[in-house]
């Protein structure tokens, strides 16, 4: 049994080189690629998310750790077939119409990508119609919307209504976030999930896809 604690630590440190080296060593020792990903890389990133939520880490640490994981996944990917490259699920994410703030949304997208979700980022200023089209086209498990301005938050509700009108609301879990968004607001507009920071977005999405 391989000890993944060193790999996990290298991810937490955002240390690309050490992470890559440990991933290669694990592969040489015939470790199961799925274990390298879940017990090493993703476990590290989950800890980083927790440290961010608790205020110990800041944005740069999150960014570097997420990039380290993305790069290591590139090493593992050629070794396994597509079906073995377990994806946790598909996420479509974007900042709602009228709103151009994207730092928080990008961070959430990167973290989710790092822990194994297949993330499609629609960018900023996304109209409800575009969210609907993306859901139809890409059939994600989760649709994530970000809003940083109170006056753009209603676009989240409009998007949920548009999903309903298109009869696809039940196909997808909708999660919302951004500084002014609250659990109360999320409940009010009928979203399936909310969280106040990127760290807890991992846990939320894992829960929603039953991981």
């Amino acid at each position: 049994m391989i000890d993944y604690s060193a790999l996990k630590k290298a991810v937490i440190d955002g240390d690309d080189e050490r992470t890559a080296q440990l991933v290669k060593e694990a592969i040489e020792q015939h470790a199961d690629p799925a274990d390298i990903v879940t017990l090493g890389l993703q476990a590290g990133l989950v800890t980083v998310g927790e440290k961010f939520s608790s205020g110990e880490f800041f944005i740069p640490e999150m960014l570097l750790a997420a990039r380290t994981v993305t790069r290591s996944l590139d090493i593992i990917r050629p070794l396994v077939s597509d079906s073995d490259m377990i994806t946790a699920g598909k996420v479509v994410i974007g900042t709602v119409v009228g709103d151009l703030h994207d730092i928080g949304k990008n961070l959430v997208g990167m973290l989710l990508g790092g822990v194994g979700f297949d993330v499609l980022d629609l960018g900023t200023d996304v109209y409800p119609k575009r969210f609907v089209t993306a859901v139809m086209e890409h059939k994600p498990d989760i649709l994530g919307m970000s809003a940083l301005i109170t006056t753009t938050m209603p676009a989240m509700e409009a998007t949920i209504q548009a999903l309903e009108s298109a009869n696809i609301r039940r196909q997808v879990k909708v999660i919302v976030g951004g500084a002014p968004v609250t659990q109360h607001f999320a409940d009010q507009i009928g979203a399936d999930g909310y969280c106040s920071n990127g760290g807890s977005a991992i846990e939320l999405c894992n829960r929603l896809v039953g991981r």
Binding site: G14, I59, P60, L63, L64, R67, I103, N106
Partner: peptide, 10 residues
């Protein structure tokens, strides 16, 4: 841009 900034600073 913020994200690239932190990567580049590193």
């Amino acid at each position: 841009g913020y994200e690239r900034f932190f990567y580049e600073l590193h």
